[in-house]
Design a protein around this nucleic acid. Structure first.
Length: 489
RNA sequence: GGGCCGCUAGCUCAAUUGGCAGAGCAGCUGACUCUUAAUCAGCCGGUUCACAGUUCGAGUCUGUGGCGGCUCACCA
């Protein structure tokens, strides 16, 4: 996207650089001692009047009027208007500055604050220094940068031109830090587990494959951290969490990026009901901290995350949404038949669990706008969840949905090594039948379980989706700074 | 991978039925000491995504390819 003929556009700026060199002005000096951010200076205007302050940032507007000039500098906090007067700066300095600066340059300005006739807090500049010369033009000042591809590929331009984009990523940061605070306050400790794994597991997904030369060994980028965190529960860390990237070698969509941020946490001596309570408290506490409210807009709806959230079983939800009670169809074929009778197309390769999952995502998930927990999933879909004591075909698992998206998945962790081995074997069987996204046998994990893992509640939460929700973005690419795109030839 | 849409100046966008490629912003020159999408006068700026084809003539029609967006599939 960076064209060759921009030379023409850059030429005037390169000429100005040459002029700076002639005048022995360093266009890229080392540092600048700033005293205030733009927003802080404006907020504290009353106590700052008459005092010299220094701000620094990018020149984002320029209105020259001969012997005086108004312009704005932008820093992280916002923008501040500068007022340059020839009789204040001196003719020589004024002329030099106005002839060598460009929109986009990074400058430092020292002066005193005043209010203009229209009331805008403005810095009357006594000294203006170039801190970094910009050689390329800024995006269009009024329409900003609209080209989606360019916005993603050159996100820095997006951040310069589109203020609300900057706000999204500031919010993202606050969401994650609020999440950490919530977990820390409850005694969870943050851990880091391998991203390069000899055996991948903990989710149904295709991995990225890589290779370590010295070990002469194939490694996989993790698709989840689940199995490592539970090893730490075996080790007695009792409450652990990790916030990090998972990698899944699958399609890209507005809800899927090949690398995405997941929070997983595990709490010994808790079950999935405890975890559900924690999820609703966590999300509502994050919303309150970051947005200042538990109610917010998403896709034109007002979402209220105040606990308690609506709770129903997966069975009820599907019966309600699709008109099929899958418990009445315990065999794959009878369920498929019932679906066909309703005019639902049945994926020939899908097993019973997959069919139930299809029903969920097609008939239930899109309707779950207000926060909802769906409890109790079929065992086929959940190889790491504990069975219900009264029903061996169902596991203690829930997913949380908000805004029509799945944002969390949790269960009472399976800690019986005998059953876990059976589940792995069942996954193996599905793999032989052609399912590429099943778990692979992890003997090392089984050994850990055989040492005894306390009853544990575990949770995975999609951080990107949570941020989408809290910032009202419809695409995951809007909350990931550099989303995956095809590289340009 | 399928479907739909898009790609024109650095940026944001026009261009009638196939008939001279345009505007605003940015840039350059000049005027202007409270402007804020500053204003005013003038100037510069194009491989219309690429390649082929139809045609007297293609930004426009056709084909192939590239990239992007949306969507479906996929994705517990």
């Amino acid at each position: 996207m960076v064209e060759q003929h921009v030379d023409e556009v850059m030429a005037p700026r390169l000429e100005k650089l040459a002029r700076l060199d002639e005048a022995h002005v360093e266009p890229y000096p080392r540092r600048y001692e700033r005293t205030h951010l733009a927003a802080g200076a404006i907020a504290r205007f009353d106590s700052l009047t008459g005092r010299e302050i220094r701000v620094a940032g990018r020149l984002v507007s320029w209105r020259g009027m001969g012997k005086a000039t108004f312009c704005h500098v932008a820093d992280v906090s916002g923008r501040l208007q500068l007022y340059l007067r020839r009789d204040v700066l001196g003719t020589e300095a004024y002329d030099f500055v106005t002839k060598t600066l460009d929109l986009g340059d990074i400058v430092g300005a020292e002066g005193t604050l005043f209010r203009t006739r229209t009331g805008e807090v403005t810095l009357e500049v006594k000294r203006l220094e170039l801190l970094a010369k910009s050689l390329r033009p800024l995006p269009e000042k009024w329409h900003g940068l609209q080209d989606t591809e360019k916005r993603y590929r050159q996100r820095y331009l997006d951040l310069i031109a589109n203020d609300e984009v900057k706000q999204v990523f500031v919010t993202r940061s606050r969401v994650i830090s609020s999440m950490r605070r919530f977990l820390e306050e409850r005694g969870f400790i943050e851990v880091e587990t391998p991203a390069l794994q000899p055996i991948y597991g903990g989710a149904a997904a295709k991995p990225f494959v890589t290779y370590h030369n010295a070990l002469d060994q194939t490694l996989f980028l993790r698709i989840a951290v689940e199995l490592y965190l539970k090893r730490l529960i075996v080790g007695g860390l009792d409450r652990v969490y990790e916030i990090g990237k998972d990698f899944r070698n699958e399609g890209i969509s507005t809800k899927h990026n090949p690398e995405f941020t997941m929070m997983e946490c595990y709490q010994a001596y808790a079950d999935y009901k405890d975890v559900a309570q924690m999820v609703e408290m966590m999300v509502s506490s994050i919303a309150a901290e970051v947005l200042g409210t538990r109610q917010f807009a998403f896709k034109g709806e007002t979402i209220d995350v105040t606990p308690p959230w609506r709770r129903l079983t997966l069975r009820e939800a599907i019966r309600e949404g699709a008109g099929i009670d899958y418990v009445e169809y315990p065999e794959r074929e009878s369920l498929a038949e019932a679906m066909r009778a309703k005019g639902i197309t049945v994926d020939a390769a899908a097993g019973r669990g997959k069919l139930i999952d299809n029903l969920l995502s097609e008939f239930v998930e899109p309707k779950l706008i207000q926060p909802t927990f769906l409890f109790d999933y079929p065992v086929e879909l959940s190889p790491f969840a504990k069975r219900k004591p009264e029903d061996a075909t169902t596991v203690e698992r829930f997913e949380a949905f908000v805004g029509g998206m799945e944002i969390a998945n949790a269960f009472s962790e399976l800690n019986d090594p005998r059953d876990q081995r059976q589940r792995f074997l069942e996954q193996l069987r599905l793999r032989e039948m052609g399912d590429e996204e099943t778990q692979v046998m992890d003997e090392d994990y089984l050994v850990a379980l055989e040492h005894g893992m306390p009853p544990t509640g575990g949770l995975g939460m999609g951080v990107d989706r949570l941020v989408m929700l809290l910032t009202d973005r419809q695409s995951i690419r809007e909350v990931i700074l550099f989303p995956q795109l095809r590289t340009k030839a």
